[in-house]
Design a protein around this nucleic acid. Structure first.
Lengths: 370, 370
DNA sequence: CTGAAAGCGCTTACAG
DNA sequence: CTGAAAGCGCTTACAG
């Protein structure tokens, strides 16, 4: 069995040090170092001799010793939205990144945050410039404003600063990787769950907010996935759409909803493809099944009150954690990541909310967590 | 906002080195080292003087330098079941541990596996002894055989070898921590999901296997959680129990089930509290909703065929990963973990199975994972 | 009980 | 183009 063989893998050939390589090649340690790091200033003949020995022994640096000797510090810059009154969603990736930092700071890594207003394109542009001025070694960016990001990202590419997308991704860029959710499939999951609450000809409605949606792309994909599920698997369950404006007075929205439901008596479920479900959930009768996204504080409360059946979590804590470690591995070990890493599409209901990774790692939200 | 303040936290007082502490205390570095590590052989007066300075400057060791200087190697021993023909469940924690090892091996850590047969108490005892003979620095153990584990664990305590439980835990032991699922609550989650498939007076049945259940404790707790949900929330939905013997010929079991369903026509759902649901799922009509545990290969196939509605995942990959890192933090930084860490109670259906952490990290299972 | 020195494996000026 | 030496911050014998 594989487990046993792997357990003894380390028995193989002994790992050599630079000193030993130098002795084998009959050169000094400094010259070996030059070859390993491609620092140049080595004759081709010497370089080849050393490289051969390096390869033969599958030499790899001891990163501990490197980190100690190296004055090189690695600065990771993070460009994500600030949490605000409306949503504390972005607190979670931040917590995940801080947790990852604990694992890597001894290697000379630091993480600096450049936060912007997720409803203000200009604040994104300003934060980007501020970030760029610090000349970071690597960048993690949430490109929630597609065109503004598209305008700025080439600056990173020109400076050869590696960056990876978190939360949402943009096509056509030389990003190192992407860490986030498969939005289309998360819409499919929402639809599958919704279908369990619908009668044979029951209808569901997609609740879209007219403005103040950052992250359009993810939301459109979720809607696409949701609709595609019903078209394919449950064509008898019609899917409607209701637009509301978040900035309207609540009574206005409530009246809107009442009128819509009166007109459409067969509506048995509501799908909110943004993270804003708790803004509306109390406006629907409890006979209607509600499904939304993201474990923000407001959404958790609505879930616990029973207003919502399911939330789908993007595991944004994990996203932050993984993004930082991917960049670490790339910068320190030159390990090139895959093009994309999809986090879990986690299904949350009242009974398992206390166990999601964020709660587990963050005593602030559940101070009495056993 | 907290994020900003934390980002500049490091600006505070400069971190001192042992050399600087030694200069301040007017002693040699060696003496400072003795105090830091409680190695003894230091006069009380000197010790106090140094300790005060250490405290004043909130001195902490640079673990990178420690690791490099230290000839000390840390051996972690892992005592878990071997995967077998019936189930590849235990492959997952193993993969998680290997992943964690990548992050810590440069610090001199190694992980050695002592695998046993999860249906053979004696193999557990033998593996335990073999493990003990290697004098590990820390142990991760899955105490699936409660009494055998209870018999052996005092040996670790006597040798002052720290150990933590994974997967299931035993009360009354000086374990460092526990990493696993809250089994009772996972039963509650299963019940909540099941309730969505039951008509007003529909019944569900708990399918118990008579023998070859290791991990009794977790299974009993899941059953307890399941029943408690219905008693509290849906008393009209009766919960029955059906015992089958896994070792019987399939036709025998199938006949059993047919007879049971004929006798109990209101049965609309089946809950399998072990990981063995795929052994039985094809024996039930598709009108009956099945819910089980664990994303083993067999269970995943049954889920994808549509035989099963939901699986509940124990996130065992994460369990392995976290267990190793907890032990690492404890051994290297003396960071004492919490008494228990509960992993996500993850709800898996056909549409999100591809995104669970294990699949994401293990290209073997999903070689074509995009 | 305490200090001086060497060493962990790599990196960085500096000299030639 | 190459080497010798000092240094990263801690640990380990060894000497006294």
């Amino acid at each position: 069995m594989q487990q046993t063989s792997l357990a003894t893998k380390s028995i193989g050939l002994k790992k050599l040090t630079i000193k030993e390589i130098a002795r084998l090649a009959d050169v000094s340690e400094g010259t070996v170092d030059r070859v390993i790091h491609n620092r140049g200033g080595v004759s081709e003949r010497t370089r080849q001799k050393i490289q051969t020995i390096l390869d033969m022994h599958e030499f790899s640096l001891n990163p501990i010793a490197s980190a100690l000797a190296n004055s090189k510090k690695f600065a990771i810059a993070v460009l994500i939205p600030r949490k605000d009154e409306r949503s504390d969603y972005w607190e979670m990736p931040y917590q995940g990144m801080e947790q990852a930092l604990v694992r890597i700071r001894d290697f000379g890594f630091s993480v600096r945050y450049f936060l912007f207003d997720q409803f203000d394109e200009n604040s994104f542009l300003a934060s980007f410039d501020e970030m760029l001025a610090t000349a970071p070694d690597g960048v993690i960016v949430a490109p929630v404003f597609a065109s503004e990001a598209a305008q700025k990202l080439p600056l990173l590419e020109r400076k050869q600063i590696p960056y990876l997308f978190i939360d949402s991704q943009l096509a056509g860029f030389e990003s190192l990787s992407f860490v986030g959710q498969d939005s289309f499939e998360s819409g499919v999951v929402a639809a599958r769950l919704m279908s369990m609450f619908l009668s044979e000809k029951g209808k569901s409605v997609i609740l879209q907010t007219r403005r103040n949606i950052s992250n359009h792309d993810a939301i459109f994909k979720r809607i696409g996935g949701y609709q595609s599920f019903f078209v394919t698997n449950k064509p008898a369950n019609e899917v409607l759409t209701l637009m509301v404006s978040e900035t309207d007075p609540v009574e206005h929205i409530a009246a809107n909803i009442r009128a819509f439901l009166a007109e459409n008596p067969k509506v048995e479920g509501v799908f909110v493809p943004s993270s804003r479900i708790s803004t509306f959930s109390h406006l629907f009768p409890s006979t209607i099944a509600l499904i939304g996204f993201d474990t923000t504080t407001g959404n958790i409360q609505a879930l616990e009150k029973g207003e919502i059946k399911f939330l789908i979590s993007q595991k944004s804590f994990d996203q932050g954690y993984q993004a930082v470690l991917l960049l670490f591995d790339y910068l320190l070990y030159k390990k090139v990541p895959r093009r994309q890493y999809f986090c879990d599409i986690e299904i949350i209901l009242k009974e398992n909310i206390r166990y999601t990774s964020f709660a587990n790692n963050n005593s602030k939200i559940y101070p009495d967590f056993k």
